[in-house]
């Protein structure tokens, strides 16, 4: 773990990647431990952001000034995350209108 003691920690790629890992792990933990559907959505947002951060970091540390594919991918990730949130919330509200609950335990009809 000697990456932390670099001279320029803000110019070190590993610091960004480690941050992304931390964020991603927090997202996975959130998704796994929440019962509330919105909580699960929060975790998914965190995971997507970790991915976008990785894209940007890779784009920056490739040393090629003219290539912005990483930025474009990050924008796609952001837009699709927004789209996903909208659909998920629409489903959530429809479910809530029927069940008066947003807990994953109460929505288990397909479990058999």
């Amino acid at each position: 773990m000697n990456f932390l003691f670099f001279e320029g920690i803000s110019q070190n790629p590993n610091s960004y990647l480690i941050l992304a890992i931390i964020i991603f792990c927090a997202g996975i933990f959130t998704v796994l431990t929440r019962k509330n559907i919105i909580g699960i959505l929060l975790g998914i947002e965190l995971m997507l952001n970790a991915g976008a951060l990785n894209f940007i970091a890779f784009s920056f540390f490739r040393h090629e000034s003219a290539d912005y594919s990483g930025h474009v991918f990050a924008i796609f990730v952001i837009v699709l995350a927004a789209a996903e949130a909208v659909v998920a919330l629409a489903i959530l509200l429809a479910v809530y209108q029927q069940r008066r609950s947003v807990s994953t335990d109460d929505i288990s009809d397909l479990k058999g």
Partner: peptide
């Protein structure tokens, strides 16, 4: 962090 990575638009 994105600004640190020179990605102002993102």
């Amino acid at each position: 962090l994105y600004i640190f990575l020179s990605a102002d638009f993102v």
